[in-house]
Design a protein around this nucleic acid. Sequence first.
DNA 1: TCCGAGATTCACT
DNA 2: GTGAATCTCGGAG
Length: 222
Amino acid sequence: VTLIRTENLKKLPRSFYLRPTIVIARELLGKHLVRTVKGATLVGRIVETEAYRGKLDPASHAYRGRTLRNEVMFKEGGHLYVYFTYGMHFCSNVVTGTEGIGEAVLIRALEPLEGIELMARNRFEDRARHPSNHKSTNHHLPAHQSPTSQLTNLTNGPAKLCQALGMERKENGVDLTGNEIYILNAPTLPASQIGTSERIGITKGKEKKWRFYIKGNAWVSR
DNA sequence: TCCGAGATTCACT
DNA sequence: GTGAATCTCGGAG
């Protein structure tokens, strides 16, 4: 149950993003990610994040310095870094800190708030590109799967939420202080509501506990 | 419910 | 040539 009303919230200013990456990763929890596309507005509450810390962090795409792929990570904080991986998925990050440091926060999960029907269409009706990874018609889930699990499956992972919000190559580098994709402020959560763990899916830098999530939220990826 | 494998592209070494 | 900040399905238990 979300008591926060999106229409009363203000867009995060540039200054929010020009701070330490770990602080931002924690404070992004509970804030509202807004995506406007073709006159529609899609909104999700951020419920899971991971920090990636440039040259300090062997798990970071920026660890070995600037390349064609990661150049957006080195922009000033408050840009969107969208990368392509595993041959078929996109993931979105919020670039953090001053220009040139190469740090970012991966958005790992959202709780859908607005535009849920369009999110569902984006997730399950756009199967033309990767038919083999969508073997069955999973927008018609088996009867034994509950409606909650369908809703949860919309945005409970970094690639899922990108598909739901239509964030791909074109969105790489978008300025989050603009009007296409942005984040609305919301109260910072108390530490008691935030869980911490090792980051998911990496092979190097595993020992760092730089994953953050809202305890008990159904959209947290695991 | 859990676990393993396959999918498929592309920047980097 | 390699392997990746993932997801999905199917088969086993």
